[in-house]
């Protein structure tokens, strides 16, 4: 069975940087992400509908951005961490052909409860900030 490491509260400090993640925004990710989150608004799967609202192509739905932000946090923390909240501000749309780079940093840590605040930003290479916010999770005392 595969081993998975989860960070403990002792192993984390305010100012720690999370490893960046580069995410290619493809039509597949936009459309399938909308489908996987059961968001059937036509702007997320129909280019014509997206163009009717002034964008050049289908764009990523919010629930996919939320999913990617959570994944980014738990990829770093490991699977025993418990996600407590995801608070995100939405910026420029993610459109196929773009590349989103997600970065993050530990901004607060309560050693007693293990509650960690992560400031996370996803920027695409064409329009800039796509999502920016805070993921809170609790880390175990020991692994």
């Amino acid at each position: 069975m595969k081993e998975y490491k989860t960070l403990t509260r002792a192993e984390v400090a305010v100012g720690d940087k999370l490893p960046n993640a580069d995410i290619d925004i493809t039509t597949g990710l936009v459309v399938c992400g909308a489908l996987a989150t059961r968001d059937f608004e036509p702007v997320h799967h129909s280019k014509a509908a997206a163009q009717a609202v002034g964008l050049p192509d289908v764009f990523m739905n919010i629930l996919t951005s939320q999913g990617l932000m959570t994944r980014f946090a738990t990829d770093w923390s490991g699977p025993d961490a418990v996600v407590k909240s995801v608070d995100l501000r939405l910026g420029a749309p993610n459109i196929p052909g773009m590349l989103m780079t997600v970065s993050g940093e530990v901004t607060a840590l309560d050693k007693d409860s293990g509650l960690v605040d992560l400031a996370v930003t996803g920027e695409n290479n064409i329009w800039g900030m796509h999502m920016q916010g805070t993921v809170q999770l609790t880390l175990p005392k020991e692994s």
Partner: peptide, 8 residues
């Protein structure tokens, strides 16, 4: 689709 391999 999210590329999330979290075993949980």
């Amino acid at each position: 689709i999210m590329g999330d391999n979290n075993p949980a």
